[in-house]
Design a protein around this nucleic acid. Structure first.
Lengths: 192, 192
DNA sequence: ATGAAATATATCATACTGATATATTATGAA
DNA sequence: TTCATAATATATCAGTATGATATATTTCAT
């Protein structure tokens, strides 16, 4: 089989758990999935249309169509397609960290600026941590109810592990750069 | 300023260290930068043309143009542009982990399949580790020579920290799923 | 009653990927 | 020496994604 479009599979995955509108799918992307995947409206809506065209999902209007909602449901063909993808080995695991990029070219801007980038990064991570911790706690409590929760928890644990590693790195990296600042201060005989 | 195209900045960053051809830029992407950024020929060559058009880089043929090389050099305007971007806070820090995605929807396929995905992920990481360790070692030894090395080292340390976290997670995640398998075996009264 | 926030879909210019095409040069084995 | 293979080098394109914007309705707090 030709390589599937990833977003087809992600959306089918979400639909395999529950019926959703495009808007709700976007919300899932921005909350639950955002730690390891993302998508914009500009790709979600066309992808949904494509899924319906190919018979992998169906679309219907809301009963009391107040909001002009379009609700999407996965079909049996859609489930088969999803299964195929889930069985195949993962192809792409990559990160795009602009912070690291700026750090890599950091000599141009100097230690002080580099530290500022790391601080901003650290702040972002620290702000996310409570959500991840909360999610992990919730999931651990309802893990017996439904097997899905166990798999959710696995991904949250991944997030926690890596976030803790990020924070450790932030600390060490800043220490290293701080030494640097002191050196240069001494070198140039500056005070404060 | 409107948001800059990231690849403009990445390429200018590379050119700020040395003159390069498009092919060499691609190699840098696939080796040094691949742990936190990526780009394909289909974006590198058009981006280089754009940089020349806008006066941020210049292009010249090789002296003995055996290979029909096109060598790109950063201009002063290019350096200014790069500085602007380096000073601005990072916008996008995201990862796209298909492994995590498949795991998130893992209930559909069951524990055995999930473990297989984690194994593949782990293998990939373990294979990369020696390169990162080697790079860190090399960089630590020549850190005094040139300040650039210190910033390279910072990004390698980031890679090492996160990769170690990944490996820890792999172990724990597989343990959790293995318990699962045992349970289901007991439940269904299977042997072996 | 009213303004702000949330819900909901759609579109578009710009950008990126992954594949493919094309051609040359270096390398190592037969 | 010759010949296949790997490496070097640029370019293009269909398919896909992003981020911004447009539009309209509904819910909610004041």
């Amino acid at each position: 089989m030709a390589t599937e479009k990833k977003l087809d599979c992600v959306i089918l995955g979400l639909l395999s758990h529950e019926e959703l509108t495009g808007y709700e799918i976007k919300k899932r992307m921005d909350t639950t999935l955002k730690y390891f995947w993302g998508a914009s409206y500009g790709s979600i809506y066309p992808t949904l249309s494509g899924l319906v065209e190919r018979g992998l999902a169906t679309k219907r209007g809301d009963a009391d169509n107040k909001r002009n909602k379009l609700i999407y449901t996965i079909t049996n063909e859609g489930r088969d397609y999803l299964q195929q993808w889930l069985k195949a080995p993962a192809e792409k695991d990559e990160l795009r960290y602009e912070t690291l990029l700026k750090l890599f070219f950091g000599k141009e801007e100097g230690a002080r600026q580099a530290i500022a980038h790391i601080d901003a990064f650290q702040e972002k991570i620290e702000k996310e941590m409570p959500y991840l911790l909360g999610a992990a706690e919730t999931l651990r409590n309802c893990i017996a109810e439904d097997d899905t929760h166990k798999y959710y928890l696995l991904t949250v644990e991944f997030g926690l592990k890596t976030y803790r590693a990020y924070l450790e790195w932030c600390k060490e990296a800043k220490n290293m750069l701080a030494e640097d600042l002191q050196e240069s201060r001494k070198g140039r005989n500056e005070t404060c």
